[in-house]
C-alpha cells in the first residue's frame, strides 16, 4: 500500500506559479481560491532585500489535525494512499478544520469573492456548486472532495487523487518523464518546468522521493506541530524559508 508524498526543491523552484495555474484548471478552482499556492515573502531592508517564495499545497499529513477535529468524519485519511480527503456529502461547513490546519490550505468559498468581479455570477451553477466553469474537467467525486466545490462545504488539495489513484500498483514514483506514468502525475508536478517537484511512494525503499529526502536533508514545514506532513522541502540554504511574520511587521514599522 502506497503512502504518496511530494518533494519540493526550493533551490530549483522559480516561483513561476505554473503549478498554481495547473491546479486551478485541473480542479476548477475559483480565482484566488488556490489549493496550490506559491507564497512570496520579502526579507531585509534596501539595499539588502531578498524576495523568497514558498510553494504550498496541502501537506496530506500523516497525523492530520484537520482529521482529528472534524465532528462528522467528513475529513478523513484515506488508508489506500495516505491522502487526506473531504467527503462533501458529510461536511457541514463548521470550518473547524480550517481553524485547526496549521498550513492554511483549506477553503470555504461561500464568502465574498477573493478576486473581483465575482466569476460565480458570470458562470452560475444550477446544481448547488459554486460555479459552472466552461472548461471543467470530467472528474466528479464528492465523497473525496473532487470536482467543482459545492456550497456550504470546505475543500482542499486532493494530491490529484483522481489521477494518482489510477496509477499501476507498486510504482515507486510518478514521474512526468516516464511516458506510461505521466497521466497519473498530479497536475502541479506535471507542469513544473524547472522540475522542482517530485511525487512518489514514501514507503517504497526504491522511490526517488525517499532518496531526495535522505540525500538532501528533506524537511517538513512546521514539524513541531506533530502533524508530520507528507510534503518535504529541499533547500541548500540558498533559497526560500518561511520568515517570521513579526519580522515583516517590524520592517513595516
Amino acid at each position: 500500500m502506497a503512502k504518496w508524498g511530494m518533494v519540493i526543491d526550493l533551490d530549483t523552484c522559480t516561483g513561476c506559479q505554473a503549478c498554481t495555474t495547473a491546479c486551478a484548471m485541473e480542479n476548477s478552482r475559483l480565482p484566488g481560491e488556490n489549493w496550490q499556492d506559491v507564497l512570496f515573502y520579502h526579507e531585509g531592508k534596501y539595499p539588502n532585500v531578498q524576495l523568497k517564495w514558498l510553494p504550498r499545497p496541502c501537506m496530506h499529513c500523516e497525523n492530520p489535525s484537520c482529521v482529528s477535529v472534524c465532528p462528522t468524519r467528513a475529513t478523513y485519511k484515506d488508508p489506500e494512499g495516505g491522502f487526506v480527503l473531504i467527503d462533501w456529502n458529510r461536511c457541514i461547513g463548521c470550518k473547524y478544520c480550517q481553524v485547526a490546519c496549521p498550513y492554511g490550505v483549506r477553503f470555504y468559498t461561500d464568502e465574498k469573492a477573493v478576486v473581483q468581479p465575482d466569476i460565480r455570477t458570470v458562470f452560475p451553477s444550477e446544481e448547488g456548486r459554486q460555479w459552472d466553469p466552461p472548461w471543467k474537467g470530467p472528474q466528479d467525486d464528492p465523497r473525496r472532495g473532487i470536482g467543482i466545490q459545492p456550497h456550504g462545504v470546505v475543500s482542499k488539495c486532493t494530491f490529484c487523487y483522481h489521477k494518482v489513484s489510477q496509477a499501476p500498483a507498486g510504482v515507486p514514483d510518478l514521474d512526468e518523464d516516464i511516458p506510461e506514468l505521466k497521466e497519473y502525475v498530479p497536475a502541479c508536478v506535471r507542469v513544473c518546468a524547472p522540475k522542482a517537484r517530485f511525487f512518489g511512494d514514501l514507503d517504497h525503499p526504491e522511490s526517488r522521493v525517499n532518496k531526495l529526502i535522505a540525500d538532501h536533508r528533506g524537511t517538513r514545514l512546521k514539524d513541531e506541530t506533530g502533524n508530520k506532513p507528507q510534503v518535504y522541502y529541499l533547500s541548500g540554504g540558498a533559497s526560500a524559508a518561511v520568515p517570521s511574520l513579526r519580522a515583516v511587521h517590524q520592517d513595516k514599522a
Partner: peptide, 8 residues
Amino acid sequence: IPLFKGSW
C-alpha cells in the same frame, strides 16, 4: 495574525 500568507 495570518498564517503563511506571504508579503501581501
